[in-house]
Amino acid sequence: MSQDSKTITTWYVDPDAEDRMSDGHAPIWRHLIDLIVERDLSAKSVLDFGCNQGGLLRHLYAIRPFRKALGIDIAEQSIAKAEAFKGNIPVQHAVGGTLEDWVEEFDLAISHEVIYLIEDIDAHAADIFKALKPGGVYYAVTGCHTDNPLWPKWRDLVAKRTNTVVQDRSITDYARAFTRAGFEVSGRKLEFDGFIPFIADGWTPDFADALDYYTQTKIVFRLVKGLSGSAS
């Protein structure tokens, strides 16, 4: 990671792993989109924080078209691919990890498996809070937390396979950080209800672990910036 720009070239040491990850996340993204309370996004501005190759925003637009969106990520090659893949949908992509240029810009923000890699979670929570309009909502999704029984093994795999630094936080740690930022915090289990493929990739070689992870361990935070909230 570059110390001055705080960017990386790719998330994974093996760059082809990002393509495989996008394919595997597609059914999870569709399930997440179905959980989003806000149904009509036709007049809304959307943020995908840690968008990688932009797949989540493309899925969202196909299911619930939005007015415009920003996908931001610290991985330069991922953003280049997101731009190449986006087609004609109203999405802007940017390389970076902060949102100082987008104040009270978004009605809806999403991050999928990103917050566990953020070193300063309080700064991130405050950054998203400022970027949301009053009444805006942030859906932050992660199964990478210390309440996950697989976490001791996974944190080593993340360190080995990616160009990132892993953070150890519990579900409660996240809830407290977002509360400190001013959000009204609630959450639920993802409870993915589709068929889960068996993939012997080292993350969940025991199929029972995979079934438990997607139905019980993976958490969706719903974080609301109240109508009286201010970015000042």
Score class of each variant (00 low, 15 high):
112 H>M: 09
117 L>Y: 04
150 L>Q: 14
112 H>E: 11
135 G>S: 11
155 R>K: 15
123 A>D: 13
140 A>Q: 08
99 L>P: 05
111 S>F: 05
131 A>N: 02
119 E>M: 08
155 R>S: 05
100 E>R: 13
153 K>A: 01
118 I>N: 08
123 A>P: 03
145 H>A: 03
110 I>W: 01
116 Y>I: 04
136 G>Q: 07
132 L>Q: 08
133 K>Y: 10
129 F>L: 03
102 W>L: 13
122 D>N: 15
115 I>A: 09
118 I>S: 07
119 E>F: 00
149 P>L: 00
100 E>C: 12
106 F>W: 04
143 G>T: 00
133 K>A: 14
101 D>M: 13
122 D>G: 14
153 K>W: 05
123 A>H: 12
128 I>C: 03
131 A>T: 01
140 A>L: 06
107 D>E: 02
146 T>K: 00
128 I>M: 06
130 K>A: 15
138 Y>D: 09
149 P>C: 02
133 K>G: 12
135 G>A: 09
134 P>K: 13
124 H>Y: 14
110 I>K: 03
121 I>R: 15
121 I>F: 10
123 A>S: 13
140 A>E: 08
110 I>C: 06
109 A>G: 07
140 A>R: 14
147 D>C: 00
154 W>K: 07
115 I>R: 13
148 N>S: 04
130 K>G: 15
104 E>H: 05
152 P>Y: 04
103 V>P: 02
135 G>M: 12
134 P>M: 07
127 D>A: 01
153 K>Q: 11
109 A>N: 00
139 Y>S: 06
145 H>V: 00
114 V>R: 07
137 V>W: 11
116 Y>L: 10
106 F>K: 03
114 V>S: 10
113 E>H: 10
129 F>R: 01
122 D>K: 11
135 G>V: 12
155 R>T: 06
148 N>T: 04
139 Y>A: 07
142 T>H: 05
128 I>Y: 08
150 L>N: 14
113 E>C: 09
138 Y>T: 11
132 L>P: 04
99 L>H: 04
110 I>Y: 00
103 V>Q: 04
110 I>F: 06
144 C>Q: 05
120 D>N: 13
144 C>L: 12
119 E>D: 15
140 A>N: 10
100 E>F: 11
108 L>T: 06
121 I>Q: 14
152 P>S: 01
148 N>V: 01
143 G>N: 00
152 P>H: 04
113 E>D: 14
132 L>K: 05
108 L>V: 12
113 E>I: 09
119 E>N: 09
125 A>M: 11
108 L>P: 07
132 L>V: 06
